[in-house]
Structure formats: C-alpha cells, structure tokens
Design a protein around this nucleic acid. Structure first.
Lengths: 336, 336
DNA sequence: CTTAATATTGGAAACGTTTTCGGTAACGTT
DNA sequence: AACGTTACCGAAAACGTTTCCAATATTAAG
C-alpha cells in the first residue's frame, strides 16, 4: 500500500513533476488553469508531500525543538503548550525532548537533538548552561533561546537569546515586603543546588532583603526541598522544630509554600496569624488556595509569547539575538 | 558551512559509504578493525546521520505523534511528558500537536499529522472521535491509541487501542458515597458538552447514583463550567442562589471543585460542615488543599505508562490492539 | 507575418541515506 | 594446486522532493 507521490500526481495530471512541485509550493509561474487542475487531482488522491524528502532536499526542516530538563515542572509544561500553539500557527512543528539525566551536559543533548533532527531552532526551558562555550552554540548554527534558564556569564550574548525574569530581584521584593510588614524572623525553604540556579538566585534575593533590613543570617532558618509538596512539607516540619520562633516563611515556589502550609496547620498554627507564608510563581492554584497565597507572579503568558515570537523573528531573520527580562509582580493576598 | 556527511566519512576513512552505513546501523558484517577506525573518524568529525535522508530511504520515521485537543489541561500536559520520557528511552521522538480548533474533525488533523510527518504511531490525549470511520483509521496505517478519549461505539475495536477509565462508574461511586453519608440534596458542576463527552459520562454517573438512592433529578442543582477555576467559582455562586438548600456538591474536576470552594467560603459557609464537596481527578493539589479534597483518583502514572508501553509493543508488532480500562480509586479526605 | 519578449513547462541533477548484488580476499579442504 | 566457503566490502540504484536550466508556447511589437 504505497502512498501516492508527486510523480503519480504528475502522471495523472499529465504534467511534469516540476509543475506539481510548483503548485504545492505556491510558486507564481503556473497557469491558473493548470494549477486548478493539479489541485483537484491532489485533492482527489489525497496527496500529502513527503516531509522527509522535502527536508532532505532543502536540507532543513520546519521543526523547532523544545528541551526541558529535570524534574517535572507544571509551569514548563504549560509554557511549552503555549509556545507550541503560537509556533504551529505559522507552520512550525515542535519536537519535544525531556531529559532527566543530570549527568549529561545540557549542551550536548542540545547539539545532538538539533543535528539529528535538523531543527531550525531550539528553545530550552529551564536547565543550566554553566559551562557552555560560545563556539559550541555557534557551531549549532540555529537560533537558541534560553527561557527561564540560568545563563553563563561568559557566554557571548550575541550568539543566543534569552527570556526570563530576575529571580534575585523578585525574591528580594517579596521578602522585603515581609520585612516591611514587621517580620524579623523569616525562614526560607529553598533548593539544595549551587548558587547559579534558580533556587540559588532566589535565596540570594532573600538574603539581600534581610541584610538590607539589618537582619543577620541564621542557619536554623534555612531548609531545602526539591520543588515538591512533600519535600516542602517535610522541610517545614524540620524548620518548625529548629526555629520555633519563626514568624514568616518564604518558599521559593508556590508548590513548596503549599506543602509547607500543611506542616504549619498540622502543629495547630494558623496562617497568617502565627506564621506568614509567601510563595513564588503564582501558579493558577495560588489564588484559589485557601487562604489565597501571597506570591510573586511570573508572567507565564508573556514569557511564552515572547519566546515564541522571538523565535519566529529569529527564524525569519527579522531580529538579532535579544535578552529580555520580564517584570514580575507582587501578589499580596491573604497568607501574609 | 556544510555539515559532514556519510560520503565525507567514507572518503576520509578510505572505505565505501556502504561500510560506513553498516557501522552506524550496527550491521555485523564489518571487520572489527575497520569498525573501530570508522567509529573514530565519526567521533572526530562529529558526524551525525541526516535523519531526513534515513527516513526518506526507509520510508518511515522514528517519530510518534501526540495530539492534544482543546483547552489547556494540566493533566494532559503531565501525561504527555511521562509518555515522552518512556518513548524516548527506546529511541522514539515525540512530536506534539495541540489544536484548539473545535470545528475541525479530530480525525482529519490526525490523518494529516501522520502522513505529513510520516509518523510511526499516534497517541490522542482526550478529544472525541464520534464520527470516525473504521476505514479512516485503517487507512492511516499506523497504530493509534486513544488515551482518556471518548470512543465511538461504531468504531471497530480491532483497529485502534484505547486506555482510559470508566468515567460513569467513577462518578457513580463518588456520588454514591455522598448519598451513603446521608446527603440528599447534591448539586453538580459539570460541563456543557453533549452526552458523549467526559463531562457527559460523569454526569450520567451522578444521575445513576441519585436514582439508585431514589432521589429525583432537580434542574436547579445543575450548573456548568469549562474546567477552569473561574468558571466553577461563578457556577457555584449561581448554584448557591438557585439551590440554597444544597448539602453537597460534586464538581467533575478538582480544579472546578477548588473554584467552587472559593464561592462557598465567600458566603460564609464552611466545608464540609455546611456543604460537602467532591472533585474528580486527584490532581497533586487535591491532597494539599486545605481542607484536603475528597476526590476520585485517575491513575495518571499508570495511564501514561500503559499508553507508552502499549505503543511500543504495537510498534514492535508484539501486540494486537487492546482496550484497557484502568481502575479509579476513591480518595476520601476532609471535604466530605 | 516576423521577431522579440515573456509566460509556462518539463528534464534531470541533486539532497544523504540504505540496501541489494555482486565481487575480492582469505582460508581450509581435497 | 584447485576448489568451495566464508567474511568483508564497494558500486550503484533507489527513496520523493526542489530547483536550475533549457525548451516550448504564448503574446506583444513592429
């Protein structure tokens, strides 16, 4: 059961394959009459061009890849879908690549992905690109956008784009707010990664806010989780015994804030009366949590749109590489 | 900056292209010495075979498509990622196709997607396949799995696989539970679709439970939303005025249950004391909501695994088409 | 009616693989 | 020494397109 190909169509229509190719590619040099005739045959035989052959001939694809690294993050999944929607509207297909293997360099998987699939562009959601060489990304030879990813300072900013938020500043703002409302003993539930990570940056913001208000760092107020409810629940339980005098807690993700809330309720304390609680991300759920969670909003929609549109512009050569930093906004709700 | 190809490698290694092809495809008929030599050259020149050419020649790809239809559903996003993970472990790449266009038949987009991309298999997450013809899916000629999708009864079950849950039964069980605990006036927040939809089936389960307990249907206790917090919040507000004597509400998704909870709290009523609340899905948040939400658990993990593994088996011709119905489990928590 | 210009068209080469088919080399057997 | 095996290898023909180039058909101009 062989599929019908361009030659079949040409034969049936009584024209050359070149002509058929022209009509499917919307070239102007075809008589209207011929075009209609061919179009009709194509319709009738349900001919669909073979993408492999086209891509081979043109030595490129219409595909852009999205790489997501690490543990499952609902935010990324959502962003990916939004990006896909925009890209597909202008004819691109997105290929997904999710990998958990922390031992492999992000750049290695990126390179292989791009070359093997002949991708036209690459979007990395999250991940860290600590040790990437400028040469490496140049060699890939397709536009790359790092969205919500950590960026290596040494990397030449002309060779890639990025879109994200300023994690340090955003974290600063929310714990600054906590300080302003009178809190002195503020705990943090962060992640155990190194400084150059999302969690690391947010932790830095937390510390800067503290020192701005003349509050000394106290180790007992630190705990780590891994972005899951469960880990934060456990972390909060530890915090509650290590630092029983806490009046506020900043969790570096909403998920973790909610996990922490459970631990707080469990010991009979109330939020925000006994302990104030702040999160980060503003996931959909945050506003509907009870009580509604104070948090800092990541502009998910804008993040995705900007990424997708920048990619399209880059692909169409309408733009140089850019680095856009989107503003976050404080969402003061009922947990503080 | 042309990429290095198989001919280059052959030339450099001083062998024929056939030999190089043999080593990259792990054919046995190559002397170990030659193989090593070629492998080394490949490594040195960072040669990666051109997929378009391979696919063209073999007239197939290693890609399987996932189609998601309709409004954003975090459950599907999560499932997709899990499926991707398993499939990629055995060498497949997944291509994503999300479409919102309700006017187009699912089967049409499926067909085009498969043919155009030369997909080896197709997974549909959600969507409805009401008017699909057996012939149509046969013609696609690749294994198709409908996961959490509605199935057309007229469709020959030998030509496709499905994995899902029994929505009617699951809904029955949870509202049956509500009845057993003494509730008589039970509202529902469902979706406005036709009977042959996820929402429709769950509504049927609700009604069957009611009639089993001799409770008459009363129209004022019905409201519709669209799977969002907001819509359910609004729906619940309406319910509260239309049917002020309600003692329990069943929302056909957890998201909607949580949206409804906000409306309930807003009028000063408490859950579950004044009104009991039940959801559906058991999304991660459900257990961490305050109070933890009673719901019915969809076996997300198993659903994804089953789908992925069935697809692999189908692709390797190790299995016939199957229809698996996974069990749901009641999660009785604190809202009832 | 010729000629020049222009609008359409088809042939064929190329894109980078895989695979068939036959060929050479090396070896063990008589 | 001649032969049959076996192991290994290369040439070349596909796969289904796109596109350059030359060829033909059509129209405009003179």
């Amino acid at each position: 059961m062989k599929a019908v190909n361009i030659k079949d169509i040409a034969r049936i229509a009584g024209v050359g394959v070149a002509t058929v190719s022209r009509v499917i590619n919307h070239h102007p040099d075809v008589k209207e009459e011929t075009r209609q005739h061919i179009l009709q045959i194509i319709e009738e035989y349900k001919y669909i061009p073979n993408n492999s052959a086209r891509y081979l001939k043109r030595s490129e694809s219409n595909d852009v890849g999205i790489i997501i690294k690490g543990i499952y993050n609902p935010l990324f999944a959502e962003m990916m879908q939004k990006i896909e929607r925009i890209l597909s509207q202008v004819g691109y297909t997105v290929m997904l690549h999710h990998h958990m293997d922390m031992a492999i360099r992000d750049m290695d998987v990126a390179q292989e992905f791009v070359k093997e699939k002949r991708l036209k562009g690459l979007i990395c959601l999250g991940g860290d690109f600590e040790d990437v060489q400028t040469e490496e990304v140049k060699r890939m030879n397709v536009p790359m956008i790092l969205t919500s990813a950590l960026q290596n300072e040494a990397l030449d900013r002309k060779v890639y784009s990025s879109v994200g938020i300023n994690n340090e500043v955003a974290a600063f703002e929310i714990v600054n707010y906590l300080c302003m409302t009178g809190h002195q003993k503020i705990g943090i539930i962060t992640t155990g990664e190194h400084d150059q990570s999302i969690g690391g940056r947010r932790t830095q913001g937390y510390m800067r806010a503290l020192s701005t208000h003349g509050i000394a760092k106290v180790d007992e107020r630190f705990e780590v989780g891994d972005y899951t409810f469960e880990s934060a629940y456990l972390a909060m339980k530890r915090l509650l015994v290590k630092a029983p005098d806490l009046t506020a807690v900043f969790a570096i993700s909403d998920i973790m804030a909610i996990g922490a809330a459970r631990a707080i309720h469990e010991v009979g304390k109330s939020i925000p009366k006994d302990i104030a609680l702040a999160g980060f991300d503003d996931i959909d759920y945050a506003a509907y949590y009870d009580p509604p969670l104070t948090t800092v909003k990541q502009p998910l929609e804008t993040l995705s749109e900007t990424t997708a549109e920048l990619m399209i512009a880059l692909l169409e050569d309408r733009s140089e590489h850019e680095h856009v930093m989107l503003p976050t906004t404080l969402k003061i709700r009922k947990t503080t």
